[in-house]
Design a protein around this nucleic acid. Structure first.
Lengths: 296, 296
DNA sequence: ATGAGGACATAACCTGGGCTTATGAGTGCT
DNA sequence: AGCACTCATAAGCCCAGGTTATGTCCTCAT
């Protein structure tokens, strides 16, 4: 698989060429020499079997295929940037200026994007990240070992203040081929509770919200231990699944999964930024919050 | 940037270790030796500055940080698979069994996912891909140079039959900091037509749909020549933008953009699979359609 | 207890991709 | 004409990452 996809450096080079219109300028921007860039693009074209750029004595322009490939490449590079931002935070365990402690869902799906944005606007803010459930978040904040926390759930842990930064909604999804994908009427609470569903295991946050909403009645068709596994099962048509909207945003947009409207069930939960009471967010914390809520 | 992100082979190895629970088995699956896998994981941990797997004499299990990193890595690998599927199709432009011609939006956002699924289920189907507007799609199909086409828009070009495979909806989006992000009431047609918007250039499919819906009245604040540019401008807070839901699914899920409800304007458009009249879809075409509509 | 087997680590060696510098050739502006 | 810009080619160097061969540790079955 990896054999047929150019490496990240090559993809970034391609994006730079697309943006700057010249191999040489792209090379300079990436800190390599022009022949290196030339060779890299050439070997990428050989790998893909498609001409990507039109060279001319006064610059290089993408071919039609090149434009398409560049768009696919951009997806990879963006995912890599999110990875990098998250990894960077994970690496700087202590002694960094902004210490974040967050729940798994937020750390997985939201934080990388925020960190990319944070670094774009305030490149000098060093961020560290710790992952844990609500209890861990509260403990670290109150011990002064973290500057800001993110939790999902109904309330704010004792001793903390907070604001809602996002809504998470659980959604019922099925593969496009499933019978439910063609129904017009929303599903009611009773029917949902009676239907066997693909779910996270008991004890997970997602499962807890669903059980609470239904009154502890969710019937498992499959119980899987990771969000990804649930998603894969649903995509492959095993049955209806209940998942965080955050986890399936891409699948819904691409129609690999279809969302089924639900009626009479409260499947929202708030995602909150939290901090010790009295500690008014300032400095880096405020910067981060401004990105998540758009108040800055 | 690329310096701090492991290469794709390393990320795939990490996913394999997570799945199989053993360095050696993961190595075997990827066709390399155990010491190579061991070294690769080690150098990845050195690069990230975080322990990713717990080695024991009876297997390897992910650490907490490792699980998080693995999830981020999965995003990159999935993007790479889509890239590969698209590139493969582009490469086999000639002499292949399933020749697809599609519009830009579909080729960029939907086809890669379909092709990954197609290859997973029918690995021997060689796919080729050509991109063009509706006229090009019709021309190729009628000339017998393509087996199936995908178009976006209101109707089916003359001489072709088709089915709707997905709905595309134009959405109005703003950055979370924009004033509209906090309004409760939907925007009406008149207000939308009166507001300066970030738009694709005139002549693009997206712009055509918007102009038609508003009666040719859209007021540009910025006119940009690519979907990506419009998206970037909107994310950076330049103003409200109108974009295909497909293009912003990820940004909406991650709350980098906020969708504004619109009232009284028909912003849907159908995405259709098309073929020459009389040509009942069969073989590979039918396989592909079964993935897009879930009827197979 | 003791030996077999699996899993990971270490060591020594080898190969090739990708970088660099140096240079040539085509185009257009002044 | 000549400068300034583009990209291509050639020759040489370096090291990341692979391989084979071995060592250590644990567990399980005889």
């Amino acid at each position: 698989m990896a054999h047929r996809v150019p490496d990240l450096a090559a993809l970034e080079l391609l994006l730079a060429v697309a943006r700057l219109g010249s191999l040489g300028r792209a090379a300079r921007e990436l800190g390599i020499t022009q022949p290196a860039a030339s060779g890299r693009i050439r070997s990428m074209e050989r790998l893909l079997g498609v001409a990507l750029v039109d060279r001319s004595p006064r610059g290089s322009r993408l071919t039609g295929a090149g434009a398409l490939v560049t768009d696919w490449a951009r997806r990879i590079v963006e995912a890599a940037e999110a990875f990098d931002a998250g990894a960077q935070a994970l690496r700087d365990r202590r002694d960094s200026r902004l210490r974040v402690v967050a729940s798994m869902t937020i750390a997985e799906y939201l934080l990388p994007g925020w960190l990319v944005a944070l670094r774009a606007r305030w490149p000098d803010t060093a961020v560290s990240l710790l992952v844990g459930n609500s209890a861990v978040v509260a403990e670290r904040l109150l011990a002064g070992e973290a500057d800001v926390g993110f939790v999902e759930g109904i309330g704010v842990p004792a001793g903390l203040d907070g604001v809602v930064v996002a809504q998470d909604r659980l959604v019922v999804v099925v593969a496009p081929g499933h019978a439910w994908a063609r129904r017009r009427a929303p599903i009611g609470a009773a029917e949902l509770a009676a239907s066997p569903l693909i779910l996270r295991e008991e004890g997970s946050g997602t499962r807890a919200v669903l059980d609470a909403a239904l009154g502890g009645l969710a019937r498992p068709l499959l119980e899987l231990s990771s969000t990804t596994a649930v998603k894969s099962a649903a995509v492959s048509g095993a049955g209806p699944a209940v998942l965080s909207e955050l986890a399936v945003g891409e699948e819904l947009a691409a129609r690999r999964l279809v969302g089924i409207p639900v009626d009479g069930v409260r499947l929202r939960r708030e995602l909150r930024a939290v901090w010790p009471v009295g500690h008014v967010p300032a400095g880096p914390v405020r910067q981060l919050l401004s990105l998540t809520r758009g108040v800055g």
